[in-house]
Amino acid sequence: MTDCGCDKAKAELEEYLHNELCASDVQDIREHLANCADCTSEHHVGRVLTEAVQRACRETAPETLRAQVLFSIREIQATH
């Protein structure tokens, strides 16, 4: 494989983080990340953000808050 370069690595970073690339592109990105501190830094930030969003999506609102929100929505819907 050859180094794919920063432009390709940065353009495909999101897909790389979500395992949405073909095997050859994954290998190209991995090789590039192994040799480029700047892209490795961006990859780290992207990974941390992705993990934070995934954790947040697993959390649920307390039942009292959920009930309040649903009540407010129903009140608004009833007046429109």
Score class of each variant (00 low, 15 high):
residue 53 V to S: 11
residue 15 E to T: 13
residue 33 L to K: 00
residue 22 C to V: 13
residue 26 V to Q: 10
residue 4 C to I: 08
residue 4 C to F: 06
residue 27 Q to R: 12
residue 15 E to F: 09
residue 14 E to I: 15
residue 74 R to G: 05
residue 78 A to M: 05
residue 21 L to E: 03
residue 50 T to Y: 02
residue 40 T to C: 04
residue 19 N to E: 02
residue 65 L to Q: 15
residue 78 A to S: 11
residue 74 R to D: 07
residue 52 A to S: 12
residue 32 H to S: 06
residue 28 D to M: 11
residue 49 L to A: 05
residue 46 G to H: 01
residue 14 E to Q: 06
residue 41 S to R: 08
residue 6 C to E: 03
residue 22 C to P: 08
residue 79 T to F: 02
residue 20 E to I: 05
residue 44 H to D: 09
residue 75 E to V: 10
residue 41 S to F: 03
residue 30 R to N: 15
residue 43 H to S: 10
residue 20 E to V: 04
residue 56 A to F: 05
residue 22 C to M: 14
residue 54 Q to W: 02
residue 24 S to T: 12
residue 75 E to P: 05
residue 70 L to C: 08
residue 53 V to G: 04
residue 55 R to G: 09
residue 62 P to W: 10
residue 19 N to L: 01
residue 70 L to H: 12
residue 44 H to R: 12
residue 6 C to L: 06
residue 50 T to F: 02
residue 60 T to D: 15
residue 49 L to I: 07
residue 25 D to R: 14
residue 18 H to Q: 04
residue 50 T to I: 04
residue 80 H to N: 11
residue 28 D to E: 15
residue 49 L to E: 03
residue 52 A to K: 08
residue 9 A to L: 00
residue 45 V to L: 00
residue 9 A to K: 00
residue 41 S to G: 14
residue 21 L to I: 05
residue 23 A to V: 14
residue 65 L to V: 12
residue 63 E to T: 15
residue 26 V to E: 07
residue 66 R to S: 06
